[in-house]
Amino acid sequence: MDRRNFLKLASAGAVIATSSGNAQARGNLEVPDEAVGMLFDATRCIGCRACVVACKDINGMPPEQSTPEEPWDLAMDLSADTLNIIKAYEPPQGDDGFEFIKRNCMHCVDAGCVSVCPVTAMKKDPKTGIVSHDPDACIGCRYCVAACPYNIPKYEYDEAMGQIQKCQLCNQKGVERIDNGELPGCAEVCPTGANIYGKRSDLLEEAKRRMALKPGDKYVYKLGSIDSPYGQEGEVPNYQDHIYGEKEGGGTQVLMLAGNRFEDLGMPDIPELSYAAVSETVQHSIYSNFLAPATVLGGLLYMARRNIKGSQDEEQDPNQDKSGEDRS
């Protein structure tokens, strides 16, 4: 074995290793200043599904599993035709009845789908933080589906030219409710104020305020939006001491309060450092400014040039090659 070359190879490896160590780790992305979102208070939700209907209506989604005989929507879960769904949870004991959980895109502060999309089809608005999708850019690799911790983006498998569907907070091209000063459909129609729209910072403040209330007291819950003049009085429940989305995976712009544990309501337990941050740190450590690959390529070029010369010489002289084989 040619020790000199081996050492060179090893030092090339060392360059990669050390450049990984020195590269700046990327932390979670920051919440945009004007980030908007929703606050879902599960203790207020009565499971009327008005939000599901409004969502289908505004986004032009058909009912699922319906037949001419049974023309109603029977969606079991989120899908490419159902971007928002209410699920009922019955605690194993106690007679508090059902608690409902609303599932839709969480509009992550540090969104996995945005980080992994090879062609920037998933975008986070720098101002509002709304995570939108551009089907004209999308290649349909479905890495966003795989990388979403909430399993939100859905691909239309049953169509020849299917596309990815996800909640875009009713602000996609052709709908643009937020840009026009309207509310997302699901927030607008919610009759109890279980789901309200607003700036994320205001919503987070509101969530903390509600958790600080004394259970049993009366409180006026806003309807539609955090800035709404309208409200509905209700009794303060026992909240879990957890604002879901405050910190999960670097935080989400959709926040949740509930009376049951979020784990029981089907929400994943996600570490505070987003997977996107871990992934990008690894990727950019290896490829920061293409320094490491360029260095390695330089070494490889040098060695390949030297060694290919050797093997071409051998090719011209079969005897020499033969002896080479014998040596082995």
Binding site: S115, C117, P118, V119, C138, I139, E156, Y287
Partner: peptide, 28 residues
């Protein structure tokens, strides 16, 4: 990979600098 792409007709976007997302492992 092309066959499995749900929107294969857009695959050329991977080669357009304006569309590339350099954070994406998939792009690499």
């Amino acid at each position: 990979a092309f066959i499995d792409m749900g929107r294969y007709w857009n695959f050329y976007n991977m080669f357009l600098p304006d569309q590339m997302n350099l954070n994406s492992v998939m792009l690499e």
